[in-house]
Amino acid sequence: VREGEVPGLNPGEYVVITVKDTGVGIPPENLPRIFDPFFTTKKEGEGTGLGLSMVYRYITGMGGAIEVDSTPGEGTKFDLYIPATTQPKPEPEPPKKFESANLLLVEDDLTLNKLFKNYLTKEGYKVHSFRSAREALKFFEKNQPDLAIVDTMLPDVSGDDLVWTIAKKFPRTPIIVISGKKPEAEIEKLLQSGRGCFLMKPFKLPTLSEKIQTLIERRKKSPRWN
């Protein structure tokens, strides 16, 4: 890429990934907003508006860029520019893993549910994932995971209600609340008391893993939560 050829990119070598469809296209008035968190033209319950926002954050965080070309009625093309390197990446020190840890994941968005589950499984955790509060509570009837990850925007029961149920019935289970909005004051107070933590979407996957490890380690050192 030469200087000024792609807005926002420094001159250099890049790997370019092109994703193209032949769908309905994106109206010109929506193009400036497609990477905004929670912007979506889908019906309620069909999308979170976080997919493109997360991709944009990851690509630009690596020093890359995304170009979009869309024609209504014909389709859309995304060009993802990722910095190329010939330098070998140093091997990072393997992080401490809790391979025997069982995690409960409650996330109604199918894409995010699969993303979180696949990542955490590769990290060495055993993940039991559900897309509704009722399914999660049925699992809790016969099992007690080492930690629960709960989205507050659920289709059947309020995620806040699920958090309170877990906190009261299973006081030794740490809780990570994930959402695109700040939790209610009482939930925030509960988490700040040492029972868990909150992650605002979108967040980096390694951050989720770090929070899990911190809470599980704290649980092992202090079996009785305050």
Rank of each mutant, 00 (worst) to 15 (best):
T207I: 08
L110S: 05
P145Q: 04
P37F: 07
I17L: 08
T111H: 00
F130G: 04
K97I: 11
V19L: 13
L137V: 13
E74P: 03
R224W: 09
V68Q: 11
S193I: 04
S100H: 13
C197Y: 04
F116K: 00
G49P: 00
L154T: 07
P7T: 15
V163T: 09
F35L: 04
F198A: 02
K169L: 07
E210C: 07
E107A: 11
M200S: 15
T85P: 05
N113C: 09
M153S: 13
G25L: 00
K97P: 05
P94F: 14
P202A: 11
S209L: 03
S209E: 08
H128K: 01
V68I: 14
D161S: 08
E13P: 03
R219V: 11
R2G: 15
P88I: 03
T207M: 08
L199K: 07
L154I: 10
T48N: 05
N113K: 07
S222H: 12
W225N: 04
K142R: 08
K117P: 03
F139C: 02
S70F: 12
E141S: 05
A84D: 13
A133E: 03
K168Q: 12
K96D: 10
G63R: 07
P202T: 05
V106K: 01
S179K: 04
R134W: 06
F78L: 13
I175P: 02
P174V: 10
E141D: 02
R33V: 04
R131F: 04
D146N: 09
T86I: 09
G75Q: 06
L80F: 15
L154D: 08
G12R: 02
W225H: 05
R195E: 03
Y125V: 02
L147E: 01
R2S: 14
K189Q: 05
L104Q: 02
K114N: 06
G45R: 08
V16Q: 14
L80M: 14
Y14E: 10
A101Q: 06
P174S: 08
F98R: 03
D161C: 00
K168H: 10
V55M: 13
E29I: 09
R172K: 14
K42W: 09
F130P: 00
M153V: 14
V163K: 02
K189N: 01
G63F: 10
G73N: 05
D79H: 12
P83W: 15
E91S: 09
N143Y: 08
L31F: 07
Y14Q: 10
D69S: 14
S193D: 09
R195I: 01
F203P: 07
L162I: 10
L52Q: 14
K43E: 13
P90K: 02
E107G: 05
G196K: 10
I216D: 05
E99Y: 12
L191M: 04
R219F: 11
E93T: 15
L147G: 02
